[in-house]
Simulated assay, not measured.
Amino acid sequence: MDETLRAARSEIEELAVEDGEFCVACAETGERPPPVTGARFANADDARRAAALAREYRDGLREHDPDLPRHRFVVSESAARSLQFAGVRERTDDTRANGLPRTSRSVVAAGDGEGEWLRMANAPLVHLTRNGDPVGDDAVGRQLDSKL
């Protein structure tokens, strides 16, 4: 069984390329769990093979951990580049009720296309990706609840 895991991971790594146009993700959540986390593939056929290997890999892991989440893997075209963020926190002249200085935070999110950007000031800051992969809905909900 461990050999199956090693072989599946190794073949996925061999199929992966740095600037591939395709990726493998969960159809329902968009999550890209191991062994396809961050992997890109040159063509749809390689990505489909990687999806099949990822299913085998996760089924093998499930023998060790029956509670391992299940994913329905699909192939999709990936963006040429990840969304980029820049944030700035500045001190204002105001103070909070507890005497601490009040700050203002602005965040800019930019994508590949011209005009693909968003600037927000003093709005809830929610991280939608981690290590280049989407975070789950529950994590986004916790961030909104905590009013970051």
Rank of each mutant, 00 (worst) to 15 (best):
2 D>T: 13
34 P>W: 12
131 N>E: 13
134 P>S: 13
131 N>P: 00
135 V>S: 02
86 A>S: 12
108 V>F: 07
64 H>C: 05
33 P>N: 02
143 Q>E: 14
75 V>K: 08
68 L>Q: 10
32 R>L: 01
102 R>G: 02
90 E>P: 01
11 E>V: 09
138 D>S: 15
9 R>H: 11
53 L>H: 08
28 E>T: 09
123 A>R: 15
147 K>M: 06
59 D>Y: 03
40 R>K: 13
90 E>K: 01
35 P>L: 10
15 L>N: 00
111 G>D: 03
141 G>M: 14
84 Q>S: 07
91 R>N: 00
133 D>P: 03
52 A>P: 05
135 V>T: 13
12 I>W: 05
137 D>P: 05
115 G>N: 05
67 D>S: 15
72 R>A: 09
26 C>S: 15
98 N>H: 02
105 R>Y: 02
62 R>N: 04
90 E>Y: 04
117 W>A: 12
10 S>R: 14
5 L>R: 15
28 E>A: 11
93 D>C: 00
103 T>R: 06
130 R>D: 15
19 D>E: 15
19 D>P: 01
108 V>C: 08
135 V>E: 07
80 A>E: 14
81 R>A: 09
77 E>Y: 01
94 D>H: 05
29 T>Q: 05
16 A>K: 03
58 R>S: 14
82 S>T: 04
7 A>G: 03
82 S>I: 01
114 E>I: 14
40 R>E: 08
94 D>V: 04
140 V>C: 09
79 A>T: 03
49 R>T: 13
9 R>F: 12
57 Y>N: 08
141 G>L: 15
65 D>A: 14
113 G>Q: 07
5 L>E: 11
68 L>C: 10
45 D>W: 10
2 D>M: 15
36 V>E: 05
76 S>I: 08
98 N>K: 00
102 R>S: 02
23 C>N: 07
56 E>H: 03
131 N>Y: 09
93 D>F: 08
119 R>F: 14
75 V>P: 00
147 K>Y: 10
67 D>A: 12
18 E>Q: 11
20 G>L: 06
94 D>F: 11
60 G>Q: 02
139 A>Y: 07
42 A>S: 07
136 G>P: 06
104 S>Y: 07
142 R>M: 14
63 E>G: 11
69 P>M: 07
90 E>A: 11
110 A>H: 00
90 E>R: 06
48 R>E: 15
24 V>T: 00
32 R>W: 00
62 R>H: 12
